[in-house]
Every structure is written in C-alpha cells, then in structure tokens.
Simulated assay, not measured.
Amino acid sequence: MIGQVLRSEWTKIKSVRSTVWTMGVAIVVTVGIGMLISALSKKDFDRMPPEDKIKFDPTFTSFAGMGLGQLALIVFGVLVVANEYSTGMIRTSLAAVPRRGVFLFSKITTATLLAFVIGMITSFLAFFTGQSMLGPGLRAHLGDPGVLRAVVGGGLYMTLITMFSMGVATMLRSPMLSLGILMPFFFLISNILGNVPATRKVGRYLPDQAGQKIMQVVTRDLDAPYGPWGGFTIMLAWVAAALAGAYVVLKRRDA
C-alpha cells in the first residue's frame, strides 16, 4: 500500500506547475548570488583587515545565496502540503488513504527525496562556481579538511528546511498563513535575533542559524556552544518537532 501512496504523491508533485519553478529558483538564486558574492570577495580581499582575512571562509562564501534560495524551498514545502487544503482535495486524499500516518509519511518522504536531490545539486553547483569566482589564490578544494562535510551539509540543510516547512504547513493547513509565518521568521526575525547582542544567544538555537553551522569550515561564532554537527542536531530536533506536531494535528483534526 505504501508504494502505491508514494507513487500517488509523486504524481501530485509532478502535476503542480509551481514545483518546477520553485526548484529552479532555488538553484538559480543560490548559485547566482554565491557567484556574485565570491567575485566581490575576491576583489575586496586585499583591502580586508587582517582579522577578517583570518576568518575568511571560501566555502561558506560560495553559499552566500543560500539564505534567499531556501525561501524557494520553503514555498515548495508549503505548497506540497497546503495546496490540498486550499483546493479541498485533502478530503479525497484522506478518503483514499484513511491511515493518516501512512498518508503523511508518503507525502513527506516523496517531497523530501526531491528536495534532497535538488539541495545536493544546488550545494555542489554553488561550491564549484563560487570557488571558480574566487580563483587560485583563495579557493577551497573538496579534499580540504571540512570542505566536503560543508558542501554535503549544504544539501542536507536545504532538505531539512523543506521538511520543517512541510511540518508547519500541515499544522496550519493554509498556504497563505504558513508562508506569512515562515517567510518573515527566516528572512527577518531570525536575522534580527541573531545579530542583536541581547538576543544572540537565543538566535543561535533557531533552526536556520544552528543548521548553517554545518556549512562553515572556518568557525565564525567562537562563543557558540556547539560545532557543525551540534548545530545540525539542533536543526534536526526542530524538524522532528514540526513533523510530530504535523502528525498529531492531522490525526486529531477533521479534513
């Protein structure tokens, strides 16, 4: 039964036109901005203060577009789930698959696998194009310590952002409400909390700020009480909580 439900969910995703453009936007924005920032960093590197040169992370620089690129995957994650609620198709889906745990598992799994593929493609493309912009004097190589972990981590980060968005959208059941909360949260609130001294300790434990640690080769926040895998674990906990909440809400509420 699960195999049939997985195929059904894959058909739903393919039939939604927004799937193609959201994935395309995620790749283009992430890679494009990464190339631009890498090129500008190369141009300005000689004028940087010595302490900034020491902290310069060529790998993380190539991921400069990840913050905007992730917004496209947030849209994808929300639409995969919430579109069925907005169109009323959720009643038909749950009638066809009355076991709600199976239904949610199949939907999340199918969209996550697609996000994983796109995330990995995006991360490796951003890395290689960004390093090409930095040039021989600054570029990092995939075999350098921590670099492969950071590049693979970039793909995992984008996958987890998508999963988190799907969990939130399942709980809220509205595409507009979900996007109205997630977009400001990741684009504004998280950045404000992370950059204001009084709230910086709180901001470190938000899913995006903790998760981005895995993409860093050179440690930027020396005061952070966790490393790359610690940050990744914090993000996993956020995703697990969102998916658990999604299951509880789907199980208890009527369609």
Rank of each mutant, 00 (worst) to 15 (best):
V97E: 09
K107I: 01
V249I: 12
A240N: 04
G77S: 12
A150V: 05
M66F: 13
L134C: 05
V117N: 00
L94N: 10
T59W: 02
I214L: 14
L250H: 08
P225R: 05
S15R: 14
V28D: 04
P98G: 12
A82T: 05
G143L: 08
V218E: 09
T87N: 12
L138T: 14
M171W: 09
G32C: 08
G245N: 07
S93K: 04
I37V: 15
L182Q: 01
L6H: 14
L104N: 00
R200S: 09
Q4A: 12
W238F: 07
M1G: 06
T199A: 04
T129G: 05
N191R: 06
P58V: 04
V28G: 08
F186K: 08
F60S: 07
F45L: 05
P49H: 03
R173P: 00
I33H: 01
I189E: 12
G24E: 10
P175N: 12
M48C: 03
S62D: 10
A244T: 14
G65L: 05
G146L: 07
V29T: 11
I54R: 10
M48K: 13
K251V: 01
S165E: 00
R139G: 11
S15D: 09
S132R: 12
Q216M: 15
V97S: 03
S123Q: 10
T30V: 10
M176D: 04
G227M: 02
Y157L: 15
L250D: 08
R7C: 04
I37P: 00
V117L: 06
P197G: 10
A26I: 07
L104Y: 04
G88W: 13
W10V: 01
A39K: 07
V31W: 12
L193R: 03
R139L: 10
P207M: 02
R47T: 14
G130M: 03
L188T: 11
P98L: 13
R17Y: 06
V81A: 03
E84H: 04
